[in-house]
């Protein structure tokens, strides 16, 4: 599920594809943009008016496949790097995928790279057939040749250099057993630092709330939390949240402590240059 994993489903992808006839004719853009977000560079960048103008900037881009030439202009400008140019017309059982690739090093033409799917899994090898360095956009477009069966799967590549330094992280996660300790902040609250400046822990804060100090100011006065150099920038909201949690008060009714000048620590000598008017 896209909203949970970041991976679009097969059904979502299939809906984007042009008719089989159009697919056989030549390259076309696939816009893997499924969410209404305020963004329209794809439609304004298309010289062929193949992407419908957006009345509402939040519209999901809509491609007219017959107007699309597969030029890739939209893929180079898409801020979400969500546009891919697919070409299934070459014959010989292979097709090409043109994808945005903002990583270093850029692969060279003819280089064999790992073909990677939407989940980050290697699904085969691919040969780089074209590299547009994207001097202006700084979004290089890399075209790779893959078996036709993979043109709707492969969305990323991994070059040799990357493979060595980045083992499959998902695998690592599976290999590590659960730790023996049970995890519950409730029992470890003396290791949770709320006020970094004054070194006040969550346990101290919780003890004070239990004693009846239920405002940020009271806790500050007794514990010094928030009196340090950062003036509660980091801990203030955490203390308010803990008060709200323990008392059941809405967070909005837990008043923050007053803000005073200066907003950053300044030496006494700093002010000696001023003259009173």
């Amino acid at each position: 599920m896209l909203e949970k994993t970041g991976i679009a489903t097969r059904e979502q992808i299939e809906k984007l594809l042009p008719s089989p006839g159009r697919r056989a004719e030549g390259p076309y853009a696939v816009m893997e943009c499924f969410q209404k977000i305020p963004c329209n560079p794809c439609s304004t960048s298309c010289a062929f008016h193949a992407i419908l103008p957006m009345d509402d900037i939040n519209d999901i881009p809509s491609v007219t496949p017959d107007k699309c030439t597969g030029c890739g202009a939209c893929a180079a400008v898409c801020p979400g790097l969500a546009i891919f140019i697919i070409d299934e017309s070459k014959g010989g059982g292979t097709g090409t995928v043109t994808l945005p690739y903002e990583f270093r090093p850029l692969p060279g033409i003819g280089e064999t790279v790992k073909a990677v799917n939407r989940a980050g899994e290697v699904v085969g090898d691919a040969v780089v057939t074209r590299v547009l360095p994207g001097k202006k956009t700084k979004t290089p477009l890399v075209t790779i040749e893959v078996p036709l069966s993979l043109v709707h799967e492969v969305r990323f590549i991994r070059c040799e250099a990357h493979q060595e330094e980045d083992p499959s992280v998902a695998d690592t996660l599976r290999e590590i057993p659960a730790p023996p300790q049970t995890a519950d902040i409730g029992e470890q609250d003396d290791e949770v630092v709320i006020c970094r400046c004054e070194g006040v822990t969550l346990r101290e804060i919780r003890d004070l709330i239990r004693e009846g100090y239920t405002t940020v100011d009271e806790i500050k006065r007794i514990s010094r939390a928030g009196m340090g150099p950062c003036q509660a920038r980091t801990c203030g909201p955490l203390i308010a949240a803990e008060i709200a949690r323990m008392t059941g008060e809405p967070l909005g009714s837990v008043a923050p402590s007053a803000h005073r000048a200066p907003v950053k620590p300044l030496p006494i000598e700093f002010f000696l240059g001023g003259d009173t008017e």
Binding site: L2, G6, A8
Partner: peptide
């Protein structure tokens, strides 16, 4: 945004 998520997801 889903597009940002997809970008890192496909990178593993």
């Amino acid at each position: 945004y889903a597009v940002h998520a997809s970008k890192i997801r496909r990178a593993g």
